[in-house]
């Protein structure tokens, strides 16, 4: 391979005639100015990019994210509290409903008991009235029967006396029958 000889005068003293480095390229002061110039340009460019665009944007995004996260956490806390409240309200409603049901059933029971008691009392009263009437009737019947017996006895006695050929006066017979009937 033919390597074109290079102009050593122009290239400086860090490159040999074959285009290879002489010594350490890092120590070649002919190149320092170029490196330093472009380094300054690069650093200034990066610094400007960072301070003008990148860092405000990234820090804003990070702040926004932490804000969003804390907001979401607060919202979650809020929702959690709401859920707890709702559960409490539900349980309260349940307890109320249970108490109400108990009250209503108690009332119903009381009402039924009152009706029942009234009905029983009424029935008792009616039964008592009926039995009193019946006893009265029985007493009447009995009295009527006793009177009839006395009548019959009187008539029979009068007839017997007559049949015996005697004359009996009416009041004597009555007294005798009455004493006999009563005596029995």
């Amino acid at each position: 391979m033919e390597i074109e000889p290079i102009d050593l005068e122009a290239a400086g003293y860090c490159v040999n005639s074959l285009g290879s480095a002489i010594g350490m390229p890092q120590l070649c002061d002919a190149w320092f100015a170029n490196q330093i110039f472009w380094l300054v340009v690069a650093l200034v460019a990066i610094y400007l990019i960072l301070t003008k665009v990148a860092l405000p944007r990234v820090s804003a995004t990070l702040a926004e994210r932490s804000g969003t996260i804390s907001n979401d956490l607060a919202a979650a806390e809020d929702l959690n509290r709401q859920a707890t409240d709702a559960e409490k309200a539900y349980e309260k409603a349940l307890a109320d409903a249970r108490a109400e049901a108990q009250r209503i059933s108690g009332e119903a029971r009381a009402a039924i008991k009152a009706d029942l008691d009234a009905a029983i009392a009424d029935a008792d009263k009616r039964i008592a009235a009926k039995s009193a009437e019946s006893e009265k009737q029985i007493a009447e019947v009995r009295a009527g029967a006793a009177a009839s017996v006395a009548e019959v006895a009187r008539d029979v006695a009068a007839e017997i006396v007559t049949a015996l050929g005697m004359q009996a006066d009416r009041s004597t017979i009555d007294a005798a029958v009455s004493s006999r009937v009563k005596g029995n």
């Binding site: 290079i6 102009d7 050593l8 122009a10 290239a11 400086g12 860090c14 490159v15 285009g19 290879s20 480095a21 010594g23 350490m24 390229p25 890092q26 070649c28 002919a30 190149w31 100015a33 170029n34 490196q35």
Partner: peptide
Amino acid sequence: MDQFMVKPLFGDYGDPVY
């Protein structure tokens, strides 16, 4: 050490580096 050499991007190898 050749990889550390400063070379002009345009033009010849031996061109001076300002």
